[in-house]
Design a protein around this nucleic acid. Structure first.
Lengths: 341, 341
DNA sequence: ATGAAAGCGCTAACAG
DNA sequence: CTGTTAGCGCTTTCAT
């Protein structure tokens, strides 16, 4: 409105304009009960008249909350993360929170310093997405009683605050579906082994094989990292096997995309020559050609739920913290069929 | 370290521990020149001993910078944004800045309030990625002299602080390449018209046609929004034309992905039946099958450059602000060939 | 119901 | 080179 320097209208200015003390203004801002309707109205109109905007820094310094939560992600830019973040964002918007984004690879700093910055810093709580090798700081967070929720991962044997899916069942169903189609040599491109979600899917895969009396061949399991690129190579390893699989259970949809590329690049067709099943059900899974059969995980909802849990922990530090498990569902589309011969 | 409540070691504690005044500690933190090496050392070691971490809120309240910049994005979760964000993140990490993420669709709030929150709020500067219909707040930012840089868009006729590519040339080259291959009916799936990048690519497309004496058929240009999903529909419109194009210039790679799906879903082959060329050169472009011929834009670098510009504006409010233009480059791969007959 | 006053942790003059 | 002194804008007792 005014020129040059950003005008900083403070609580004081509002108080003067409204003819009240400045603590009354504070009360109005914080929606306190005991303020006469009349004064509240005066303050409110003074605020809009002056174009007052709270200074969050001051608020949080003075002991209030910062109204920002931090999100730690390994990377951005794929729709797996996009889906989850959308859920987070929706929930945060509703609660008037802002989002601070931290990319995990940035931890060049000494880890303890990193966590300290995070917890004593400007966030009221932390959301950790697929925290690779994060156990160290998870412990710090726990010890400091800092509010946090892990998404799509749970420490081995842990029951910490987390939102996860029924990964084992999902892996089981995916594999069983392939078996029922008639496949016997089923490859699996696993995710990063430290992630519980990856480990459990692999586990489900093995359980299904065992249940159907199919011998487990370690050569059929290759390690990926849930990303498309490395999965391309992983799929090639599988295809180069003396006795290649007739179907591949990809640890994630992103993984499946890489496998699909690898298979196509050899001139093989899907599902004609090789069947592929994914995990996640990202938006692309439905639109790609052939549409990807996959195990649906409610990604967006996981983001929302995790956020709601976190907000609850922030508001009630003593509330019980546990993990919530979301279901998964086999989505049959066009990328799997009976084995070739 | 201690139990329960997060221990807050302040500058005072450090001062006491080091046996200096607390402004000396502040000087050390801010790397001021005039501190005796000896005291500086004492302070430093006291800091690590106590596990001191600066309180950013207090710092910025006291007039310093907040060390956070805000990034406004329309959405996350696609690799176009991922690439740019990676560039931003790298540069920010180097400068010890944190990133606040704002999704544009969140502006339900009155726009002026939104901008006010942003500018008087907790960020030292703003990076705007593809700000749709943002002209309104761009003006506010300009008037308030708030540091900002727009990425991959420039207001029509404007020369504001922005990082853009040679979109017109890119569009021209893409189209010309198709023409030289022998195509005469070339479709274009345009991006959101308000975005200069979209408008310029369309412009380049038309210039190439004109230059090669090919009549412009408005029916061959359909509007998309740079996203994969809508592009699927757009491509279908093109394919349903009584006289469909033999080649499609997609306004972005994401657009190309949608077009590729649409084409494949009709049982048509690429480039056999239809050639497709994209714009951006996202990582997927190289790995997909067939590999996508496209116009490369240095996305990651654009993120870095924009960030460096912003940081410079923040540090030197009086420095000149202009736009920087990055080059584009035709990357020939396998998705284009001579027309069918 | 409302005002006064004391900080939150830090930066930035200001004196020495 | 270093200590002292004010605030930054707000939340929060504590009185009234």
């Amino acid at each position: 409105m005014s020129s040059g320097k950003r005008s900083r209208v403070t609580i004081m200015d509002v108080a003067r304009e409204a003819g009240v003390s400045y603590s009354t203004v504070s009360r109005v801002i914080n929606n306190y009960k005991h303020v006469s309707p009349e004064k509240r109205q005066r303050v409110l109109s003074a605020m809009t008249r002056l174009g007052y905007v709270v200074n969050q820094q001051a608020r949080s310094l003075a002991g209030g909350r910062s109204q920002v939560i931090g999100l730690l992600v390994p990377t951005v830019g794929n729709s797996y993360i996009g889906q989850i973040m959308q859920g987070i964002d929706e929930e945060l918007a509703a609660a008037q929170y802002d989002l601070m984004l931290y990319t995990t690879h940035r931890q060049r700093t000494k880890e303890s310093v990193y966590v300290a910055t995070l917890t004593r810093g400007m966030t009221d709580g932390l959301l950790l997405l697929l925290p690779l090798g994060a156990s160290a700081y998870l412990e710090t967070l726990r010890n400091e009683q800092f509010p946090y929720v892990v998404i799509d991962h749970q420490e081995i044997g842990g029951t910490g605050p987390a939102v996860v899916s029924t990964n084992r069942q999902g892996g089981y169903h995916a594999t069983e579906y392939l078996i029922e189609l008639g496949h016997r040599r089923i490859g699996h491109i696993a995710g990063t082994p430290e992630l519980s979600s990856a480990a459990e899917r692999l586990d489900g895969y093995q359980m299904a094989l065992a249940h159907h009396k199919i011998g487990f061949d370690p050569a059929l399991v290759v390690n990926g990292d849930f990303q498309t690129h490395s999965s391309y190579d992983a799929a090639n390893v599988l295809l180069d096997l003396p006795q290649p699989p007739t179907a591949i259970f990809a640890g994630s949809d992103l993984t499946a995309f890489g496998a699909v590329d690898a298979i196509r690049n050899r001139g093989l067709s899907i599902p004609g020559d090789i069947s592929v099943i994914g995990f996640d059900d990202l938006p692309e899974a439905a639109s790609m050609h052939p549409a990807l059969t996959t195990v649906r995980q409610h990604l967006l909802e996981m983001g929302r739920v995790a956020t709601r849990m976190l907000l609850q922990y922030i508001n009630d530090p003593d509330c019980e913290r546990g993990q919530v498990v979301m279901d998964t569902e086999l989505i049959v589309r066009d990328s799997c069929s009976v084995p070739k011969r």
